[in-house]
């Protein structure tokens, strides 16, 4: 199958999930017999686009235009669908990031394609693609077959491996496409970063706090540990609903579903909707006073103890080890 993979860049840097998508595109092409075209959209992105050959792209195309410097779901969506037609792609792949999730449904409609969203496993042969995707925030896994001629697939970040680059690069081909003002009906005017924090959806290590932290004034203990580990701060629904922490940090069924390498749950009992959002983490540590808390049922390591004593000790041990 011919695979078109949209590789997202922000500030001319290819995102890690984009590299994971290119590598997975290569896997699908190898399993089904085909080639991989990678597409990068932006302005001044040709050089960085060329490096995708190192992750398995057979060829690279760029839509390099000053009007494409800012993200526009309408213009980017049109560009991806047009390139899919130009290269006669059977599969269009992208990462299930904020941008990928915004684009894939639009592209699927333009191509009359079935959509498999936020997938965690893909199997392909010459005729079919079968995808596994978590539903009910991971309480169940759905195995689906895409029965349409064209198939659009988004991949959950942090699940597929990007591997190392082989170092090879190519000179990208320019995309020929005329865009009118109407194609920019929806366009980004500005981006504001949350005050220097790492987002839970992108973090490899997350330290989350729950009601056991007893109040927002104690969350500096969570922040200190997260910062010593170079990780992100997460929160349970209870503390977000209580206004202790911003909703961007919420992990669980009505927050973010995460799968970091290490998830440390502190003072979180482990409500089912929280477990759904984090139990696919590779390693889970629970720190809780209540030895019967459900969180211990999914934890690889646990400390049954007072978070206010354990957290400072843990932070200092981590600093000792990592020199942070």
């Amino acid at each position: 199958m011919k695979v078109l993979v949209f590789a997202e860049q922000r500030d001319k840097i290819l995102k890690k999930p984009a590299l994971e998508a290119v590598r997975t595109a290569r896997m699908i092409a190898d399993q089904s017999g085909g080639t991989v075209t990678a597409l990068v959209i932006g302005h001044g992105v040709s050089a960085v686009a060329g490096t995708l050959a190192g992750y398995g792209a057979s060829e690279v195309r760029v839509m390099d235009h000053e009007k494409m410097a800012a993200y526009s779901c309408t213009a980017y969506g049109k560009c991806i669908a047009e390139v899919a037609k130009q290269v006669q792609a059977t599969v269009v792949l992208m990462a299930a990031t904020a941008m990928g999730k915004d684009l894939a449904p639009r592209v699927a409609v333009k191509l009359e394609a079935g959509l498999a969203a936020d997938c965690t496993a893909i199997k392909a042969d010459a005729a079919t693609v079968v995808a596994t995707r978590p539903v009910y925030a991971g309480k169940a896994l759905l195995e689906i077959a895409l029965t349409s001629a064209l198939k659009v697939i988004t991949l959950r970040p942090n699940v597929f491996s990007a591997g190392e680059s082989s170092g090879s690069t190519v000179v990208p081909q320019k995309v020929e496409l005329t865009l009118a003002d109407a194609d920019f009906a929806s366009v980004v005017e500005g981006v504001s970063a949350s005050a220097g924090t790492l987002d839970v959806s992108e973090a490899d290590i997350i330290v989350s706090g729950g009601r056991g932290m007893r109040g927002p004034e104690h969350f500096h203990l969570i922040e200190n540990l997260a910062s010593a580990l170079g990780g992100a701060v997460g929160a349970s629904r209870a503390v977000v609903d209580a206004g202790w922490r911003p909703h961007e940090e919420q992990v669980g069924q009505t927050g973010k579903t995460v799968s970091p390498s290490l998830y440390i749950a502190v003072g979180i009992s482990g409500a089912i909707q929280h477990l759904a959002g984090m139990s696919s983490s590779k390693y889970i540590v629970a720190i809780n006073k209540d030895k019967d808390a459900p969180i211990f049922q999914v934890a690889d390591y646990g400390i049954v103890g007072d978070a206010f004593e354990v957290l400072p000790a843990l932070t200092s041990e981590i600093k000792k080890l990592l020199g942070t």
Binding site: Y71, T97, A98, M99, S186, V187, V188, E189, G190, V191, S192, A193, S194, T197, L198, D199, S201, E202
Partner: peptide
């Protein structure tokens, strides 16, 4: 979006 917000017109 990841780690921030986009202002969209």
């Amino acid at each position: 979006i990841e780690g921030g917000r986009e202002r969209v017109r």
